[in-house]
Design a protein around this nucleic acid. Sequence first.
DNA 1: ACAATAAAGTTGACACTGTCAACTTTATTT
DNA 2: AAATAAAGTTGACAGTGTCAACTTTATTGT
Lengths: 202, 202
Amino acid sequence: MNAEKVINLGEACIEEALKIVAEQGIEQLSLRDIARRLGVSHQAPYKHYANREHLLAEIVKRCFADFSNHLDSRPESCHPMEDLGNLGHAYLTYALTKPLQYSLMFGSSLPDPGKYPEMMKQARHAFSILKDAITRLDDKKNISEIEINALFVWSTMHGMAGILQNHVAGQLNLSVDLKTVAIPKALDRIRIALEAQIANLA
Amino acid sequence: MNAEKVINLGEACIEEALKIVAEQGIEQLSLRDIARRLGVSHQAPYKHYANREHLLAEIVKRCFADFSNHLDSRPESCHPMEDLGNLGHAYLTYALTKPLQYSLMFGSSLPDPGKYPEMMKQARHAFSILKDAITRLDDKKNISEIEINALFVWSTMHGMAGILQNHVAGQLNLSVDLKTVAIPKALDRIRIALEAQIANLA
DNA sequence: ACAATAAAGTTGACACTGTCAACTTTATTT
DNA sequence: AAATAAAGTTGACAGTGTCAACTTTATTGT
């Protein structure tokens, strides 16, 4: 199927890896399979990635970059709370439309963060987008409050995204539709919590 | 080290599997290694578990049962909101003191839920504990509202737990301590959101 | 009590994996 | 054009899951 010669094997490995993860899950990902599908010897990929984890770290790094781009391209709004809502929406949209990438970033199969600083640099950048949006809610807040709120929002987003795709929720016999009802309501509750807390300080 | 004969190999496999996961992570778990450490042939475990995934499903099932027990043994309280706070505390305590078990249940390495109904039965039971606590907040609410709130609370809990152990947060250069500051504040925000929403309906 | 049967455990094989080492080919540099 | 580095190949090894056939141990029915 991939008879023509591969121009850039390093890039081709990443593309093929994503396909394999999409088709068979991350457990089934093997460098040998990548090589086989690209019509190349089983050792060729090792000339570009020292081992399996290095390849995964590179993929995750790009996922974070792609994720940041997606968050940055949300609709503009000059109302900070509306903007935060847009951000939440963009977050979940990403988790739903690119479940592979999302689970690579936030699933438990993440490569050891300490070993891959470039990967984590991209991760911090994504988090800073959320912090910036929360800062605009109330610029009189100190950095701790902002971080606390950011972690709160991120936790809920992360939790909902996880529930949405981990087919766990599908097995809970819920009477309510997740995407159309539960998620918007949950976003409402985040807004309520943040507004109440801002009012408290005022 | 385990020279004396194993009495119940099925149980011994599970114990040894948990040890291996604790020592080396779930990726390193192999049935052959379990067999070797128990001083038994490499095929012996297969007489008790058809394959690797069946063993994992059995482990996860027990984790959910243990999790439910832990949630049920939280301090009693006749104030529903306080009880929900205790529940949240118990949830996070479990995630922090038994990170292995927690990540087995909620990590991405979960065995296919559809294939293991017994496992999911235990999962539903754990979820029902949360639903019950939320029902007591306002017994005039309909089932949908309760489920929505339960998902909201669960999402935030799940997200925070994930952030707490996924070493992701440790790499974000946060200025605030997670356990002592950020988590209690986040629980506050959950309470605020739920109270505001109950007041709205009243 | 004892033969029949099922369960538990062993041994051997196979295809698959990651990874090391040595080699050949191709591209780059000087 | 020679020297050198990069990219790709081939072969090997230990580890893995799992199938099949076998032996040992327990259970069971009569």
